[in-house]
Amino acid sequence: MTDRRQALTPDALSMMDTIARTGSFAAAARELGKVPSALTYSVRQLEDALDVLLFDRRSRQAQLTAAGEELLQEGRRLLAQMDAVANRVRRVSTGWETQLTIAVDGVLSRLTILELCEAFYAMRPNGGQDGPGTRLRLRTEVLAGTWEALVSGQADLAIGVPGDSVLASGIELRPLGDMAFVFAVAPHHPLATFDGPIDDAELLRHRAVAVADSAQRLSPMTVNLLPGQDVLTVPTMHTKIEAQLRCLGCGFVPEPLVRDHIRLGRLVVKQVQRQQRVATMAYAWRAASVTQPRKAPQGLALQWWLQQLESPATRHALLNPQSGLVSDVD
């Protein structure tokens, strides 16, 4: 048992994650700065310590066995927990945090987030001459990546997480609101003149544009893609909209983000037989615990941001990127 515990180091788990993510020992070795033979030797040592076969040697690719899949999934979970601990212990015990990291889903209003940052920096706590002194760090995430940033300890506040996220221990979640999505194509796209609601069989004939989930360790989310459909994958929702404006594909896009494009005829909204998508979004943060007296209390910077998110006007502005934020920021 001791040998097994000594073999399951963070480096070994990270190595497994890199091999699985890159798809080959050679690619993983390049990313890790090792020669392939050294990586192969490390894997064999791990297999010997655990007395299992982690990779199918008959495959030319890095094909995991069932035992390897189990180790990969559990290893990713353990790495996320270690990251969470390491990030939490760096937080300041009282007062204004040294740094506050905010993960924001890419469909939300960037202008509103920056207006909130502007109001935060303009504060003068206790009537002093200086601002709060907390360094803000913004992260743009996609789909499950926003939630992962919070639960892994990489972010203190996550805005735009899926509303049905399964709560982890010590996480508080509040509703942000709903964002409607519409199926849209460029006016010169073949589907632009399609008569009647478009069924899945017809959609399958056309390339979809999809935004890649930014989650690295949680299971990535796939939304409204059909099995076997040609897909152009892009990094952000704004890139997806640009791709659809250029007739590179079709797909669902947030109605508030494309409202002007629709009004000006640059995009055409089409009815589809599958259910129209409405994204229910929330915001979440790590809660202070009354049962753990040695745990750091909630910082003042986080308290300020949560106070802003309690405002219906702020939530509306975040979900309607073209509206901007009203001037009632506290």
Rank of each mutant, 00 (worst) to 15 (best):
L136Q: 11
L248I: 05
Q276G: 14
A20F: 00
P321M: 11
K295W: 05
F252H: 12
G131Q: 10
A284V: 08
L138I: 15
P36T: 01
F25G: 06
M1K: 07
Q271C: 08
D17I: 00
A192Q: 01
R217V: 00
A122Q: 13
S59A: 14
L302G: 03
R4M: 14
A66K: 10
C117I: 09
R139W: 07
I262L: 15
P132R: 10
L325V: 14
L245R: 14
T65R: 12
S219K: 13
G23C: 04
A84D: 11
R174D: 10
T291R: 10
T236Q: 07
V85F: 14
M15W: 00
L46E: 06
H189I: 01
P187Y: 00
L100T: 13
T22S: 12
L111D: 10
V182L: 07
G196L: 05
L204I: 00
A301S: 15
L108D: 08
P197K: 07
D11R: 10
Q244M: 15
R58T: 12
R266C: 06
A313D: 14
R135D: 06
S109H: 05
V142K: 04
D51G: 04
V231L: 06
R21M: 03
T222W: 02
M221L: 13
V268M: 07
A144F: 05
R44N: 08
L226I: 13
G145P: 00
V211P: 08
L72I: 09
G145D: 03
A243K: 09
L157F: 08
P36R: 02
D105P: 08
T222C: 03
K295P: 00
L226A: 05
G153V: 04
V272H: 02
A27P: 00
I159A: 07
R246P: 00
R58D: 09
L267K: 08
V85Y: 11
C247R: 06
H238D: 14
E70F: 10
